[in-house]
């Protein structure tokens, strides 16, 4: 497997380059390993990027990036492939149990710089 390694990973800026934008298929996630953390990265149909925790809080397995992407109402969503809970990709909230903080996915900053997808350090505070 020949993935082009990303260019400089600049810890000083707090952003880690994980892949080229065109490596992401619309509506199909990938997992990225950032500082030992597993992060699920999604490119949506409209081209926007989202990054949430790869760990499924229900099963404890690291599988969120492999879930089906879709919408619920206006919310872009991913459904866990394990037990099918649906999460809002913008907030990480589990739409099947919005009041349960234990079922919330951490949301990570993600940005496009030139043609590269970068993940920001730390999770966005919910």
């Amino acid at each position: 497997m020949t993935a082009t390694l990303p260019p400089d990973t600049t810890a000083s800026t707090g952003w880690t380059t994980v892949c080229r934008y065109d490596q992401l298929q619309p509506e199909r996630g990938v997992a990225a390993l950032v500082d030992g953390q597993q992060i699920a990265v999604f490119r949506l149909f409209d081209g926007t990027l989202h990054a949430v925790g790869h760990r499924d809080p229900v099963s404890g397995a690291h599988v969120i990036a492999r879930g089906l992407v879709g919408t619920r109402g206006d919310a872009p969503t991913v459904a866990s492939p394990m037990y099918k809970q649906v999460f809002d990709l913008r907030t990480g909230v589990c739409l099947d149990a919005p009041d349960d903080p234990a079922l919330r996915l951490p949301v990570h900053p993600v940005r496009l710089r030139d043609d590269w997808v970068e993940i920001g350090a730390g999770a966005v505070a919910p």
Binding site: M1, L5, C19, L33
Partner: peptide
Amino acid sequence: LRRFASFVNAPD
């Protein structure tokens, strides 16, 4: 085959 990478930035 590219889809079977465990991590997009660390495929194996």
